[in-house]
Simulated assay, not measured.
Amino acid sequence: MTAYIVFERDTTEDQQALDRYAAHADGTFEGHPVTALVDYGPHEVLEGPPIEGVVVLQFPDRESAKKWYFSDAYQKVAQDRFRGATYRAVLVDGVAAQA
């Protein structure tokens, strides 16, 4: 079943660290079946506190999503994301297609 990783950026702490992350994050997708569906496009918070941005990545299944997220390549790059901002990352399954 299709799975998604949703990143929600709450607050920026270090813009230079986020810039380094942004410069290298896409390179971690190589060899992984990932499609970026949302990449910090315009958003409107309908409930809850304000956020700065959202990214939604699509994978064929949970295993593929976790393989990318926990890969050495991504975890190395993610250190700048951790230093740069407060994020929430959620892995969620899609809905099975109905016949």
Rank of each mutant, 00 (worst) to 15 (best):
E30I: 11
L18S: 08
A17E: 09
Q16P: 00
D80W: 13
D14N: 15
A65T: 07
L18E: 10
D80M: 07
V95T: 12
D61L: 06
G41V: 07
L91P: 01
R9H: 01
R9C: 09
A73D: 15
L91W: 03
G27E: 14
V92E: 02
V92H: 01
D14Y: 02
P50I: 04
T35I: 07
Q16V: 11
D26T: 10
D14Q: 06
A96M: 06
T12M: 10
T35P: 00
V95H: 11
D61Y: 07
E44V: 12
V6W: 03
L91D: 01
A78P: 02
A89I: 12
R9M: 15
Y4G: 04
V34W: 05
E44L: 14
P50V: 05
F82D: 04
Q58E: 15
P49L: 08
A97F: 04
L18N: 11
S64I: 05
D72T: 12
A89C: 11
T28C: 03
V45D: 05
G48Q: 05
H32W: 01
I5G: 02
V77S: 09
L91F: 15
R83W: 00
R88N: 11
Q58V: 00
G27P: 00
E8V: 15
Y21L: 04
F59D: 04
S64Y: 04
I51N: 06
Q15D: 10
I51A: 07
V56C: 11
A78C: 07
D39T: 09
R9W: 00
D26S: 07
A36N: 00
G53C: 10
E63D: 14
D93I: 00
L57M: 15
K76Q: 13
Q16S: 14
R9D: 01
A99K: 11
E52H: 12
D61W: 10
V38H: 08
G53A: 09
A22L: 12
V45C: 08
L57G: 05
K67G: 05
K76W: 03
G27A: 14
L91G: 05
L91E: 06
A96T: 10
Q15T: 11
D61Q: 06
G84C: 07
F59E: 04
G53R: 12
L91K: 05
T2H: 07
Y74P: 04
S64D: 08
A97K: 10
T86I: 09
T28K: 04
V95R: 09
R83S: 12
G48V: 01
Q98G: 14
F7A: 15
R83M: 04
A96L: 09
D93V: 01
H32K: 05
A89S: 13
Q58S: 11
V55M: 09
Y87I: 14
D80Y: 12
Y4C: 06
F29K: 06
Y69I: 07
